[in-house]
């Protein structure tokens, strides 16, 4: 398969950007594998409190039986962390896909068509953007909870609404600058229908800024999801395992010296957020030519053979005495 041109630099990176990208990718891939193979990897179900008819101990410290210990509800911490990564990845993928699918086309249309459509959309989006994002997510989650329930889908939609304005703004502003590019005008002059102009001439050049934002937003979405869960507006404990919820439950444990219930979900959040951030920064570095160039080392200029240069600090030739200057300065 041919790699899209705008992603080609990703495969040619060197130096710092490569390191960022690779280490970030390693972390993200790790969690994706956990998420996909959770049923195989996790020793128990996310809400399983007993095995073979024997109830797990409450708040047991890490042991051979329960590698990361158990919670106050007797669930296995390791299993919840693993199942939690499945929830996190599901929500993030859905949220990113939804917000891309809505924010990008809206931004394209708003930027290219302009006029009243643009002004109306900008107004709505700015209003959404100005809203404190967590509050917005809570409101959406609350509204949806009665009709759809408090599952993965609801959480994803709540987060989607938060990020749509971001894609919208970035894409719209980019479209507005691309729209004025001579090659867009040239396409019109050649008789390109408007849809073709948007698709082949505008979209292709605007889409470059999206991968970096999408990954950075993914990192942010993990945090938002955890915050929702922590505040009790996220995914219900009966629906899926969720790190934010676990953290919330672990608060009381912390005072009692029970560290494992809070540490591991917290660590998972930090790791995955860092992973996405590293990938995002890496992509940004790779796709931004200014940053890319800065990473190149200056060359070493080999010393010249003595005959080619005047002796250091030599008396400068007097002006006008060209013969002297010419022979002195240049190769004999």
């Amino acid at each position: 398969m041919r790699v899209p041109r705008f992603l080609q630099p990703v495969f040619e990176v060197r130096g710092m950007a490569r390191w960022l990208l690779l280490s970030g990718l390693a972390v993200v891939v790790f969690f994706v594998v956990l998420a996909i193979f959770a049923p195989l990897i996790a020793p128990y179900g996310f809400d399983q409190v007993s095995a073979d008819g024997v109830r797990f101990p409450k708040q047991a410290s890490p042991s051979g039986e329960h590698l990361l210990g158990t919670t106050v509800q007797s669930t296995d911490v390791l299993s919840r962390v693993i199942w939690g990564s499945r929830t996190a990845i599901e929500v993030v993928v859905l949220a990113v896909v939804f917000s891309l699918a809505i924010g990008v086309p809206l931004g394209l249309i708003s930027g290219y068509v302009g006029g009243r459509v643009d002004r109306a959309l900008v107004l709505v989006m700015d209003a959404l953007f100005a809203f404190p994002y967590l509050l917005l997510a809570i409101v959406i989650a609350f509204l949806l909870s009665s009709s759809v329930g408090q599952g993965v889908f609801t959480a994803a939609v709540a987060i989607t609404v938060v990020y749509i304005p971001q894609y919208f703004r970035v894409v719209r502003n980019h479209v507005i600058s691309v729209r004025e590019e001579p090659y867009v005008e040239a396409a019109r002059a050649l008789g390109a229908p408007r849809r073709t102009v948007i698709r082949r001439y505008v979209f292709h050049n605007v889409i470059q800024s999206v991968p970096a934002i999408a990954t950075l937003n993914a990192a942010d979405a993990i945090l938002t999801l955890a915050a929702l869960g922590f505040l009790g507006y996220g995914i219900q404990p009966t629906e899926a395992a969720e790190w934010g919820y676990d953290l919330q439950r672990a608060i009381d444990d912390a005072g009692a010296g029970i560290w494992w219930t809070g540490l591991f979900p917290g660590l998972a959040i930090v790791l995955l957020v860092t992973g996405f951030t590293l990938v995002g920064e890496g992509i940004n570095d790779v796709l931004n030519p200014l940053i890319r160039q800065r990473a190149v080392e200056p060359p070493v200029i080999p010393a010249q053979p003595d005959s080619e240069l005047p002796p250091p600090g030599a008396e400068p030739p007097p002006r006008g005495a060209t013969e002297a200057r010419a022979t002195e300065v240049h190769r004999e």
């Binding site: 190149v296 060359p299 200029i301 240069l309 005047p310 400068p316 002006r319």
Partner: peptide, 29 residues
């Protein structure tokens, strides 16, 4: 400067750019 010395005297100036591969010898002597 000394008597007759020009304001600016450039001698054997080289400026090379790094590219990741071989350098660009944009100014070369």
């Amino acid at each position: 400067g000394g008597p007759g010395e020009p304001l600016l005297a450039v001698r054997g100036l080289r400026v090379w750019y790094g590219t990741g591969g071989d350098p660009v010898r944009a100014v070369d002597g």
